[in-house]
Design a binder for these strands. Sequence first.
RNA 1: GGCGAGGUCGCCAAGUGGUAAGGCUGGGCUCUGCAAAAGCCCCAUCGCGGGUUCGAUUCCCGCCCUCGCCUCCA
Length: 477
Amino acid sequence: MPLSLYDTLSREILPVRPMDGETLRFYCCGPTVYGPAHIGNFRTFVMQDVFRRVVEAGGMATRHVRNLTDVDDKTIRRSQEEGRSLAEFTAAWTVRFHADCAALGILPPHVEPSAVAHLPEQIALIERLIEKGHAYRAHDGSVYYDVRSFPGYGKLSRLAEREITTDAPEREQADEYDRHSAADFALWKAARPEDGPNRWPSPWGEGRPGWHIECSAMAMKHLGESFDLHSGGVDLVFPHHENEIAQSEAATGRPFARHWFHVAHLTVEGRKMSKSLGNLHILEDLAARGHRPMELRYVLISGCYRQPLNFTFASLAAARKALARLADWQRRLGGPPDFLLPGEEDFGPFGPVYDALLSDLNTPEALGRLHRIGREVVAAAEGGTLPPQEFETARHGLALVLQCLGLDLSETDTTAPPAPEAPAWVQALAAERLDARRRRDWDEADRLRDQIKEAGWLVRDAPDTSTLEPLGPPIAT
RNA sequence: GGCGAGGUCGCCAAGUGGUAAGGCUGGGCUCUGCAAAAGCCCCAUCGCGGGUUCGAUUCCCGCCCUCGCCUCCA
């Protein structure tokens, strides 16, 4: 059974099938590498990752391309502010992005093309559009796409051209002077003084590519003129993806991507994420509050990708508990098997979890089923009512399902959290209490426990010893 | 104004034309010197008003409210 997924273009849930019958080729709009990616960015990347894992678990090969936008207004401006070359600046943020993705268990794409490394492809595509009469050169050496030359313009976002032009803000007025229509967008931007050394030669003079053209050029280069699926955050529907379609289909005369997969946005504690609210959280912020990346991943897949998801620190704490439980079950089922054989028939009792994922990537339903089935299976295994062979199937199925969700529980050992060392004086109290406990002086032991608790530490007794752990995640100030 | 999404237990969040998954929190119990952990159990009639229907949270209409996009923000 193939994965069914909502398609933004047709507004229908459609099966996702490779058009070549072998490899599912898909493109994801990647990050602009000018700073750390925030949790909203990661919602999209995590969902794209789950998508890929689910497809691959069904035995299908994939070819995953995700670009790096490393030349645009922001990268140019920021790099200059810091006095670094554009290449040096974007390389540093790319390293950071890769590290964050790895922490979140996001599989690296098979190809990760960079925009600056694909200038010839972009220029060639623009030339092709000019030749076909879909683009024109402005006086300053910029090149614009002629939106009116493409009848299908607006089909993805359902925005009539009339709407786009009527209320266009009065920004970039200088450019508008040269544009045939306010809806026309730049394919090539003529160099400006403030761009500094960040300019490249082209048939139209020095400049740099517009934003949208990079994805068209790189997707076509690495996936072909027509491919299976294209993905990004909902905000990219318009104008980015609308423009990509216009550019690509006008140039090739062929359908660009067959399926469009968009991930809804995140709110934070019920409010829109924004710089001014200071809630554009990044992985670093969460770590400072004692949260692991996997906890964020769990939160990010706990809602339907088509619905806005409300991120809260309470849900992060809930995720920690839920992960600990899953890790416990996995341990009690004998731990993950040494190797996994992907295939729908191998999910054993966890088949319904995978079915939920195949049904429009319903991750919350999948998590619900995972908890319900997991509880039953573990109880049966420990109650002795699970035949040995089914025990092995369950163990394997659980691992497969966790792999689809990308939940790596290896770091989730509840008995040994990455707890910071308690201050020496708290440890001294704990040692004192352990003595009292060994003397069976319960009153003294309880008194010391309370004292330690007030200091923010929990005493956890084992038969012959005790350990300390912080009471809840530290609250960032 | 245009296009679109949504209002389900204290919080997060699925789902269905026949009386509502799951996680967290909370309450009870088992275990434990106590506590923690673990386990078991309990906890919602689905924004408001109409309509269709044997029956609606699920379909239709109206209203209220929230949110997203409408030129470079995932």
